[in-house]
Design a protein around this nucleic acid. Sequence first.
DNA 1: TGATATACCTTTTAGTTCGAGGTATGATGG
DNA 2: CCATCATACCTCGAACTAAAAGGTATATCA
Lengths: 122, 122
Amino acid sequence: MARLGKAGDLMAQSNPPFMSGVPELLLLRLLNDQEMYGYELVRSIKQATDEAITLGEGVIYPVLHGLERNGSLKAKRKAVGGRTRVYYSLTRKGRDRLEKLRSDWHRIQSGITSALGAPANA
Amino acid sequence: MARLGKAGDLMAQSNPPFMSGVPELLLLRLLNDQEMYGYELVRSIKQATDEAITLGEGVIYPVLHGLERNGSLKAKRKAVGGRTRVYYSLTRKGRDRLEKLRSDWHRIQSGITSALGAPANA
DNA sequence: TGATATACCTTTTAGTTCGAGGTATGATGG
DNA sequence: CCATCATACCTCGAACTAAAAGGTATATCA
C-alpha cells in the first residue's frame, strides 16, 4: 500500500516526520475556499493563522508544484496588468488529500493536548 | 541577543522549523510530574499521546543529552538489578523552558485551528 | 543455548524548512 | 529619468529535525 511523502510523491522507505504536512494542509484549506496564487498564499497563511505561522516563498512554491504534479491542484495562468499570476484550485483528489491531512492533524493535536493535560500518575 | 536551537545550544544563523520542539515539550511535560529514564520515556510518550506520537530512542536520547548539557535537566544514575538507569528530573531552568514551549505550542495550535475554521471571505 | 526484553547510546539517511538569491514588471516619488 | 519598492514568479544551498537501523550489554525465560 503505497505511502506518500514530499507533498504527494511516491516513496520507498522512511516515514515523514510526524508533524510535517502542515504547510500542505494550510495551503489546501485556503484553496478549498477560493482559487489563489502563490504570492497571495504567503500573505494569506500568515493572516489566517493570526501571525502564528509564516511560510516563505521557498516553502510555498515547491509545495504548490508538488501538489500540481500529483494531481491535487490544477493551475491556471492569468495575465493581470503586465504580470502573470498562476492561480491554483483543488481537484477532487486535492479535496480528499485535504480531508486526510485534516484528520491526521486532529489526531496528533489531540494526542499532544492529552499529554499536556493531567498527570499520568492517576 | 543569542537565540536557541537544537534543544538549547547557542547558534548563529537559521531559525528552527516552525513546529519543532514538540518532542522536547513532551519530554519536559512528563518529567515535570516524575523523574523517568530514557527507555521509559519512549513508551510513556506513546501512551500519553494515545498512540498518536511515537518517538524512537534515536530522538529521545539526543534531546535528553542536550537538555542536560544546557542545564534544563539533571541526571541521576541508579543501578536496578544488574542494569543502570539514568533518571532525569527538571531543574528550575527546565520548568521555565517547559512553560515557554507550552506557550509556543498553544500559539501555533490556535493559529492552525483558526485557519482551519470558517472561510476567510467573510 | 537461544530468544526476547530491558537499557543505554550513536550514526546514517531522509526529509522539511529557512534563508538568500535570481529574474522581471509595474508603480511611486525625487 | 532613474531609483526604489512592491508584486510575482522561481530555485538552490545550508541548517535542522526526525526516522531507522545498528551497536553494546545484562536479565529473564523457555
